[in-house]
Simulated scan of single mutants.
Amino acid sequence: MKQHAEPFVEAFARSRVFNGHLCKLAEGNFGGFFGWANLTLQSDGGFMGMHEGAKPADMRVVDMYRAQDGKLVENWIFIDMLHYLNMQGLDVLARMERLNTC
Results as ranks from 00 to 15, higher is better:
Leu25Val: 00
Asn100Ser: 12
Lys71Phe: 06
Leu90His: 02
Glu6Tyr: 06
Glu52Val: 05
Phe34Val: 00
Leu22Asp: 15
Trp36Gly: 06
Asp63His: 10
Phe18Gln: 12
Leu82Thr: 14
Lys24Tyr: 11
Asn38His: 12
His21Val: 15
Met1Glu: 15
Leu85Ser: 09
Leu99Tyr: 07
Ile77Ser: 01
Lys2Cys: 09
Arg98Lys: 14
Asp58Thr: 13
Asp44His: 00
Gly70Thr: 05
Trp36His: 09
Ala94Ile: 02
Arg14Ile: 04
Leu99Val: 01
His83Asp: 15
Leu90Gly: 02
Leu72Lys: 08
Asp91Thr: 04
Thr101Ile: 10
Val17Met: 13
Asp44Gln: 01
Met81Gln: 06
Pro56Gln: 06
Ala67Val: 13
Gly31Cys: 07
Asn75Val: 11
Gln3Trp: 12
Val61Arg: 01
Phe78Glu: 02
Arg66Phe: 06
Tyr65Met: 10
Phe78Gly: 10
Lys2Asp: 13
Val61Thr: 09
Thr101Gln: 14
Ala5Pro: 03
Gln88Asn: 15
Ser43Asp: 03
Lys55Asp: 04
Gly70Cys: 05
Met64Cys: 10
Leu39Arg: 02
Phe78Ala: 08
Phe78Tyr: 09
Leu99Ser: 10
Gly53Met: 01
Lys71Trp: 09
Phe12Tyr: 09
Gly32Leu: 04
Asp63Val: 11
Pro56Lys: 03
Ala11Gln: 03
Met96Cys: 06
His4Phe: 11
Phe18Tyr: 15
Met81Cys: 05
Leu39Trp: 09
Met48Asn: 08
Glu97Pro: 00
Val17Ile: 14
Ile79Ala: 03
Leu93Ser: 13
Ala11Lys: 01
Gly35Val: 09
Asp58Pro: 02
Ala57Gln: 02
Leu90Thr: 13
Cys23Ser: 15
Arg66Met: 11
Gly89Ser: 12
Met96Gln: 07
Ala11Asn: 02
Asp44Glu: 07
Val92Tyr: 10
Ala94Met: 10
Ala57Asp: 03
Val62Phe: 07
Glu10Leu: 13
Glu6Arg: 08
Gly28Met: 11
Leu25Ile: 00
Leu99Ala: 10
Leu39Asn: 06
Phe33Asp: 05
Gly28Trp: 08
Ile77Arg: 07
Asn29Met: 09
Met1His: 14
Leu93Phe: 13
Ile77Gln: 07
Lys55Met: 04
Glu52Thr: 08
Ile77Val: 13
Gly20Asp: 00
Phe34Ala: 00
Ile77Asn: 08
Gly53Gln: 03
Val17Asn: 12
Leu22Met: 15
Ala5Leu: 10
Leu85Lys: 09
Thr40Ile: 11
Lys55Gln: 08
Val17Glu: 14
Leu72Val: 15
His83Lys: 13
Ala26Asp: 06
Ile79Asn: 00
Leu99Phe: 05
Glu97Asn: 08
Gly49Lys: 04
Gly20Ile: 12
Phe47Trp: 15
Met48Ala: 13
Cys102Gln: 08
Trp36Arg: 10
Gly31Phe: 03
Leu41Met: 07
Arg98Glu: 07
Gly28His: 04
Gly89Thr: 10
Leu25Gly: 00
Trp76Tyr: 10
Glu97Val: 05
Ala54Lys: 09
Thr101Pro: 01
Leu90Met: 08
Ala94Trp: 03
Phe12Asp: 00
Leu82Val: 13
Ala57Gly: 11
Gln88Met: 15
Leu41Asn: 01
